[in-house]
Design a protein around this nucleic acid. Structure first.
Lengths: 153, 153
DNA sequence: TAATTATCTACTAAATATATAGACAATTTA
DNA sequence: TAAATTGTCTATATATTTAGTAGATAATTA
């Protein structure tokens, strides 16, 4: 298995977490997001545009402009970000729900053992990415203490 | 996400299921496995060699030779086949157990939200592929009736 | 010895990932 | 209105990976 999550997806997730940390009404510029996260600026341009076109971000041109979330971080699923930037999450097209396509070498799709196990994998991946939100990522990246730290002082 | 399971892995799984269906002591030749599964013969050569070197198959040269499983199908995990042919299953190197590698752009690996969620994804994938054996695949590809068909005649 | 079958090395072509360059459009502020 | 700023769009370039092919070599059997 080669890069399932490419740099594009990784950069996009890092950037949207960055934006989710902004105060309400605040915007961040691409150059700043790029620098703070070690992302090539021009590459990030295209990534943020994809996320904007997917409805997750809003943008504003000109001085004082920049990017911000278009909706609450808790309503943006990690799976949506990944699908917008990388396409379907299924390990193989014949196991995809959103972009199903039969293999040319496959005789009977209903009894294909590869498709069977890869469908299970697809569901397992979706179970994680569609039940984790950008807000969850913000919380994880902020919390440096172990879980249940609220029991401590 | 691009091809997580490439043709190499798909062909390898199909081939090992083919071999798992053989009678005990029987072997199959590469040309036959290739033809029956619509796999390019030369490509399959390299794939079976990898699986052999990983200890899952045994081979014999000359007339009457061929390939066979080196151990019971129920002891060969799908995850082992995939790892042998495609490398680590983690979606990103920083979330891999067997081939961990930090991202160059990552500041603090312990609080990286991308690594956190991708580690969950890795565990979810492993939960499937390391709990499914080649014997399971044989069973699935044979059973055409719905589950619990044993209640029917 | 001849036929068969796996094994090994090298190479090619196509697709994908990872950017970079530069013009253009919108907005703000002086 | 002019100038600076910032996002948007199109095109191009390079490196890596995938997917496969070609051909020689080694082992085994009949």
């Amino acid at each position: 298995m080669k890069p399932v999550l490419t740099n594009k997806g990784k950069y996009g997730l890092k950037a949207i977490v960055h934006l989710a940390r902004l105060e309400a009404g605040e915007t961040a510029q691409v150059a700043d997001v790029a620098q703070r996260n070690n992302i090539p600026k021009k590459f990030l341009d295209a990534i943020l545009l994809d996320l904007r076109n997917a409805g997750m971000l809003r943008s504003k041109k000109g001085p004082g402009g920049g990017y911000a979330l278009a909706k609450p971080a808790r309503s943006i699923k990690v799976g949506a970000v990944i699908r917008a930037l990388e396409g379907p999450i299924a390990p193989i097209a014949c196991a995809s729900r959103s972009a199903f396509r039969a293999c040319e070498d496959c005789g009977d799709i209903d009894t294909c053992p590869v498709r069977s196990v890869m469908s299970d994998v697809r569901d397992a991946i979706a179970g994680i990415v569609d039940n984790t939100t950008v807000a969850d990522l913000v919380q994880r990246s902020t919390a440096r203490a172990p879980l249940h730290a609220d029991y401590a002082i």
